[in-house]
Amino acid sequence: HERALMVNRLQKLTRMLRVHPDPKWKQEQQELIKRLK
């Protein structure tokens, strides 16, 4: 369940980064990718 939330968050971040590349979001995205591996 928590994994699904993280995947959701990651997808949302990816969409937001396409619109507005924010370093903070980029960092969070990298963190999520690490944790999901």
Rank of each mutant, 00 (worst) to 15 (best):
L5K: 10
E28A: 05
H20G: 04
N8E: 15
V19W: 10
M6R: 02
L17Y: 04
Q30G: 04
R35G: 04
L36W: 02
E28S: 02
P21G: 04
H1Y: 14
M6T: 02
H1L: 13
E2P: 06
N8K: 15
E31L: 08
D22N: 15
T14L: 09
E31G: 04
T14Y: 10
M6L: 13
R3W: 14
V7E: 08
K34E: 11
L32G: 00
L32C: 00
Q27F: 13
K34A: 12
K12I: 12
K24G: 03
L17R: 01
L32R: 00
V19K: 14
A4V: 10
L32A: 00
K26N: 03
Q29G: 01
R3A: 04
L5P: 03
M16Y: 05
P23M: 03
L5M: 13
Q30T: 10
R18C: 06
Q11A: 11
M6H: 02
E2F: 12
K26D: 02
V19Q: 13
H20T: 09
K37Q: 15
A4N: 09
E2R: 06
A4E: 12
Q30I: 10
A4Y: 11
K26R: 09
Q11F: 11
K37C: 15
Q11N: 13
H1F: 12
R15L: 14
L5N: 09
R35A: 12
L10C: 00
R3F: 15
R3I: 14
L17I: 11
Q11Y: 13
K24R: 12
Q11S: 14
R35M: 05
K26S: 06
P23F: 06
K24C: 14
E2S: 08
K26V: 10
L36G: 01
I33K: 03
E28Q: 04
A4L: 12
H20A: 05
E31Y: 09
H20F: 09
R3K: 12
E28W: 06
L36E: 01
R15F: 08
E2I: 12
L13V: 06
Q27R: 10
R18G: 07
P21V: 04
E28Y: 05
R18W: 05
Q30P: 03
R3S: 05
L17H: 01
H1I: 11
V7S: 04
L10P: 00
R3V: 13
W25M: 12
R18V: 05
E2K: 07
L36C: 02
K37V: 09
Q29W: 14
N8I: 15
I33D: 02
T14D: 09
Q11T: 11
P23V: 04
L32H: 00
R18L: 13
P21D: 14
R3G: 05
Q30R: 12
H20L: 08
Q27S: 08
L13Y: 00
P23D: 04
R15I: 12
K37M: 14
T14A: 10
K34L: 09
V19G: 13
H1K: 11
V7K: 04
R18E: 07
K24M: 10
K24T: 09
W25I: 15
Q27Y: 06
P21Q: 11
E31R: 08
W25D: 03
D22S: 08
L10M: 02
M6V: 06
L36M: 03
W25F: 07
K26H: 08
H1C: 13
E31I: 10
R15A: 13
R9A: 03
V7Q: 05
Q27G: 04
P23G: 05
I33N: 03
P21C: 14
R3D: 02
V7C: 15
K12S: 06
M16S: 04
K34W: 07
E28D: 01
R3L: 14
L13D: 00
H20S: 10
E31A: 07
Q30C: 15
E31H: 07
L32Q: 00
V7N: 04
E2N: 09
A4K: 14
Q27I: 11
L13I: 09
L5G: 08
Q29H: 06
Q11E: 11
L17S: 03
K12N: 08
R18S: 08
H1T: 14
L10R: 00
Q27W: 05
K34C: 15
R35K: 14
L13A: 01
V7M: 15
R3T: 10
K34H: 10
R9V: 03
E31Q: 08
L13T: 01
E28P: 00
M6N: 01
L17Q: 02
W25V: 03
V7A: 10
L10Y: 03
A4Q: 15
P23R: 04
V7G: 08
Q11H: 12
M16L: 09
D22V: 06
E28C: 09
I33R: 08
R9F: 04
V7W: 15
R35P: 00
T14V: 09
K12D: 08
K37L: 13
K26T: 07
L10N: 00
K34F: 12
L36P: 01
Q11P: 02
E31D: 10
P23I: 05
L13S: 01
P21Y: 15
D22W: 04
Q29D: 01
R15P: 02
K34P: 00
